[in-house]
Simulated scan of single mutants.
Amino acid sequence: MAGDSKKVQPIIIKRIKKGGHAAHGGAWKIAYADFVTAMMAFFLLMWLLGSTTEGDKKGIADYFNSPLKVAMFGGSGSGDSSSVIKGGGTDLSNTSGQVKRGQVEAPKRTFNLQALKAMREQQAQAEAARLKVLKEKVEEVIANDSRLAQYKSQIRLDLTAEGLRIQIVDNQNRPMFDSGNADVKGYIQDILRAIGGVLREVPNKLTIEGHTDSKPFSSGDRGYSNWELSADRANASRRELIAGGLPGDKVLRVQGLAASMLYEKDAPESPLNRRISIIVMNREAEDRVFKAAEAEATASAPEDAENIPAMAPQ
């Protein structure tokens, strides 16, 4: 037994083989690169939003709300999206009060009331000078015409707020019309036709007014009165002006004013109150007439629309 214990025991050596990790490959690198790219894009987006003006943000919002509309017609802030600098411009250190290159010319196209007012004043001055020359030309025609020179005292020319006014007044010994009649006398025909020839080349529109004295008709205002008579005389004068060469489309208004605007207020029945007024209207007076006509047409449009009978469905 003792000998057996002295037997050499076998030495068992355990060799532990360390196993290696499995190969992971390069997939983690791709994921990491995607993460870094996403983070960079996120911070770039935050920077862009922080440096974008309110107009740009509104334009971007409009685009995503209705992209087709903004693409075709534009929208609020849609033209500022090319600038990432706050306030626009090219200076990164300045975040406010900058102007982009494309906006430099914008103030020149701004509606300038002062410039428009100055332009209208210049036009009014030029037109007044032109009417003054016309006045001198009419006076020259009357002075050089032997038939008209003798009636010079009955022709009054003056410049008013409406333009050049040419008045042909009556005379006790030389009336323009017979009493209560609208037939033009022969010498008045000569005057009106001569004036029509001069005004033929003037671009301005005309107003022709008939005036009478305050002496009423026996029938009163209910029958044929000074209102109808003054209108008939103004229209008869229009025909003579056209016979003298004046184009018919130059006459803007023909009106009878009866005795509402007396030439001699202290003498209502004076022959000077019986007159024909030809007004070469300036542009301002023309505009007032056209605007009044437009306003009247606009005011009467709803009433006309209500009077249209409804059509029954078929």
Rank of each mutant, 00 (worst) to 15 (best):
L48T: 07
A236I: 04
A41T: 00
R15D: 09
F177N: 02
V202Q: 15
A149C: 01
K185Y: 12
L199P: 00
D183C: 08
E54I: 04
V169I: 12
K137G: 00
V8Y: 13
L148G: 02
K117A: 13
K108G: 11
P216S: 07
I30D: 05
V141A: 06
G256Y: 11
K215N: 14
F111Q: 11
E162M: 08
D158C: 02
V251E: 07
K6P: 09
S260N: 11
S219H: 05
A293R: 10
F73I: 12
P309D: 08
R274Q: 14
F177M: 01
N171Y: 03
A124M: 13
N171Q: 09
M46W: 07
G75R: 02
E54N: 09
A161W: 00
A258T: 08
S78N: 13
E269V: 05
D249V: 02
A236Q: 08
I278M: 10
A234S: 09
S81T: 15
S214L: 11
K57L: 14
P67T: 05
R200S: 15
G20K: 11
N144P: 00
N282A: 06
K100P: 11
A129W: 01
A243E: 10
R130M: 15
F73L: 15
Q103V: 04
G3I: 14
K132V: 01
M46V: 10
K18C: 09
N235H: 14
H211T: 06
I60R: 13
A258R: 08
F64E: 06
A118T: 13
T53Q: 13
I168N: 07
A124H: 12
Q122K: 15
R200D: 15
R283V: 10
A27Q: 14
S225G: 04
S83R: 00
V289Q: 05
K152T: 07
R130C: 12
L48P: 04
L241P: 02
K18M: 10
A236E: 02
G59R: 09
D170W: 01
L262Q: 10
K135V: 00
G245Q: 02
K135P: 00
I191C: 03
A118D: 13
V198I: 04
G26T: 10
A267D: 13
T160A: 08
Q98L: 03
L241G: 08
A305S: 07
V138C: 07
Q189R: 13
S218L: 14
T90V: 05
G102P: 03
N226T: 11
G88E: 04
